[in-house]
Amino acid sequence: MSAPVLEVAGLAKAFGGVRAVDDVSFTVVAGELLAMIGPNGAGKSTCFNMLNGQLSADAGAVRLLGRDVLGMKPRAIWRLGVGRTFQITATFTSMTVRENVQMALLSHRHGLGSLLSRASARHRNEADALLGRVGMREQGDRVCGVLAYGDLKRVELAVALANDPKLLLMDEPTAGMAPKERIELMALAASLAREREVAVLFTEHDMDVVFAHADRIIVLDRGRLIAQGEPAAVRADPQVQAVYLGSGAMFGHEVPA
């Protein structure tokens, strides 16, 4: 195993006396998909937002490739190579699919200060190449505001890849999608991660997606890490079943109904 891309140690955050994240430590290595699961309100989002720089932490350390990034702004963390997708897709709805990717490329190359050149002519081929990789090249000229939800998720993936990230943070990447689309999107993310040696950390409530694609799983409950390990081991953990997985009726059978 290679050196960890992301190292989280003793991370903690409290809101008004409630410990939202309490002494959480884990690592992710290049090419690995790590799933973070847990009940609603377990602290997953808080944890994510601290890794991403949107929230400050009370204690602990977050190291990206050995460099301490806690307290940096999201845009500074992005420049160090952290791509991100959101639970509810965040794209520039007034721009075309290609322009969305071009913006990320322009920002990566420090090209946003230009006042007189034409934005839509910059890094066009590179944007198309990225879109091709996620299967959205044909829709490059469509405006993001009119895209189907599943397609927007793919655009987000292309945008997240624009700065050659070392780490990809995906917050509920398949939320709101149909079962088959979910598996497909995650399969795409997994193959991209392995091919580009990107470490992926994702949260997810769809256990079919988690068990199909995660290399490892960590489980949060009330801010604390209660279990971690290979999918099969986590699935069999009685504590995880009690606080999160339940009876198992909500996932697993191939053809439900």
Binding site: G38, P39, N40, Q87, E172, A175, G176, H205, M207, V243, Y244, L245, G246, S247, G248, A249, M250, F251
Partner: peptide
């Protein structure tokens, strides 16, 4: 059931 943990969905 959207966005809820399996246990809560039950």
């Amino acid at each position: 059931s959207e966005g809820l943990a399996p246990l809560i969905v039950e």
